[in-house]
Amino acid sequence: MPQPETTIESKNIIPAVETSDKPVADVSFVSPFHDEISGNAVSIMALPHKENFFVYIWRTVNELRYVKFALASFVVNSLRRRYQRSVLGFAWSLLNPLLMMIVLTTVFSLIFKRDPKTYGIFIFTGMLPWTFISESIAAGCSSITSAENFMKKVYIPKIFFPLVTVSTEVINFSLGLVSMIALALLFGLQLHWTILLLPIAIAITFFFTFGLSLALAVGTVYFRDIAHFVRVILTCFFYLIPIVYPLSAVPEKYVGFFQANPFSHFINLYRQIIYYGNLPTGQEWLNPILLAIASLCLGFFILRQKEKDIIFRL
């Protein structure tokens, strides 16, 4: 039997070609993107020095400017794909909620014996934001795991895919709102000036949903069951939130419980602005804003814990 004279493992390993005697600039960036603007070099470090949580958020968000074109492309493509080859195309974004509203209004105005005109808008003001929140979260859960093929081939910040999902949904949601307002005008319903506050409400909801989706997307990498579990939970919440019924229909002793539900603060915001035409009170603004901040912190906190490990677990 020919015995090999040397084994590779026992060989001395020559460490480097030309060992650098130049000091390597100690940059706090951990992003592999080259900073074209300032021309600074960028480092990837195994363990970034303990950076402040808010510095981390700033850096992560800042990294997005290198991929803003990719972000736009992905959002446009996923919207485009949704209605591709259908005759009506983008009109479905407007038609879908319209048809949905007709069904819901017919059913519920028969059950609850309400005026179908105003009841339609009532349901709609709850239904649209809820669809946005629940769809984003449901799709957000699997946004990182389903992007495995991208993440293993090119460098993309981890927050990219959850952000694409929520951004796509927020555009759909905005189109839905437009179609709802058009409908309301068509039915001759009175609209209030407060709908001008909609962009602010949308922004708050967007951040809330994004934070939650980010946290769940990272979680799903470790426990794939989360994605399935979340769908069930979301269905429960649909009935726990005053969407198809007003809060006043809830028995007195349970009202506190229903109000404690984080999602209802968002639904309430839209209802006040569109349906009742009230300027939301300070508390009604503050609750969703605080929830959005908490959700973002949760999302970024979980991301920071796991960012460097995710790729190995896909």
Binding site: V24, A25, S31, P32, F33, H34, A41, V42, S43, I44, M45, A46, M151, K152, K153, V154, Y155, K308, I311, F312
Partner: peptide, 15 residues
């Protein structure tokens, strides 16, 4: 490229 971050050490890329 940055797809796999090393667990130990550092990489410095200029360009």
């Amino acid at each position: 490229v940055g797809i796999y971050p090393p667990q130990v050490g550092r990489i410095h890329v200029h360009g």
